[in-house]
Design a protein around this nucleic acid. Structure first.
Length: 257
DNA sequence: AAATTGACCAACCGCCTACAT
DNA sequence: GATGTAGGCGGTTGGTCAATT
């Protein structure tokens, strides 16, 4: 079977694609990614659409750099739960597992470098003496039996992970951290105030049975989306200009004014 | 100014799980 | 209960850009 290379697009997303995806999520909600991928006209896989939405387009995402409090929380939770990034991400409203994962990678790399520096006070005689990164990361504690080393395998102790599985419920009621503000934020998020879960949407997709009025993305109209009811259009701020989408025809237009 | 290095980020891959049939 | 499929998750890779040499 020869796979057609142009069947599904890959690589970086364009603004137009972003806009099409936002439009489609606005109409269908952030479920049924295969449907969204099909009906949006995007030549992307459902997985790819989901990832783009979750990691980049979701209105609740924080775009700014992680705060020291958030960084500490990540470190604490990683110590506690290992590399359970999605789980950790749920404790940091507005942050994605990918973001946290990337942060942890940078963090462990820095740690490894600092450790290496402190263990060898003499300056390296030549650049060639620097070990490859994989060697450095081994120092920070890979646990893989297969010898496969990873930047992330620094805190995911198998034993603690096993325990984590059995004590899953227990940990839901864990003691509070000393960072009250963080927990306040978490409590706020868990109270349902930030719940981009689009309940009540029609599950049907093939025959285009979806309730426009209840379109969950419209819930964000105040902050991100502008809804031009008269024109049945959704307006998105993308880059420095607005795109609009006609809900009925699906026609996309840009407003640079 | 050019080359190199390192940090960061976005995206993909493969595996696992839940759910529908 | 078996099977297929979609979604979710963690690991990995590649590109970009800023800092450094």
């Amino acid at each position: 079977m020869v796979r057609k290379e142009d069947e599904t697009r890959r690589g970086p997303w364009t603004e137009q694609e972003d806009f099409q995806l936002m439009c489609s999520v606005g109409l269908f909600g952030d479920r049924r990614w295969d449907c969204i991928a099909k009906v949006s006209g995007l030549n992307r896989s459902g997985k790819s659409c989901r990832l783009r939405w979750v990691n980049y387009l979701h209105p609740d995402l924080k775009r700014e750099k992680m705060t020291p409090q958030e960084e500490k929380l990540v470190i604490d939770l990683q110590k506690k739960w290992g590399n359970r990034w999605s789980r950790i991400a749920r404790r940091l409203p507005g942050r994605t597992d990918n973001e946290i994962k990337n942060y942890w990678r940078s963090y462990t790399r820095k740690q490894a470098q600092e450790r290496k520096r402190s263990m060898s006070p003499l300056p390296p005689s030549s650049k060639d003496s620097s070990p490859p990164l994989s060697t450095i990361t081994t120092d920070s504690g890979t646990s893989s039996e297969s010898g496969k080393e990873s930047f992330f395998d620094t805190g995911g102790h198998p034993a603690s992970l096993a325990m984590e599985k059995t004590n899953d419920e227990e940990e839901q009621s864990e003691k509070a951290y000393s960072m009250d503000d963080i927990w306040d934020e978490i409590a706020f998020a868990e109270s349902g105030a930030i719940t981009p879960i689009y309940d009540g949407l029609s599950e049907r997709c093939g025959d285009f049975a979806f309730p426009l009025v209840d379109s969950p993305a419209l819930l964000y109209a105040d902050s991100l989306w502008q809804v031009g009811k008269e024109e049945s259009k959704l307006l998105f701020p993308l880059s420095d200009h607005l795109f609009s989408c006609d809900e009925i025809t699906g026609a996309y237009t840009a407003d640079y004014s």
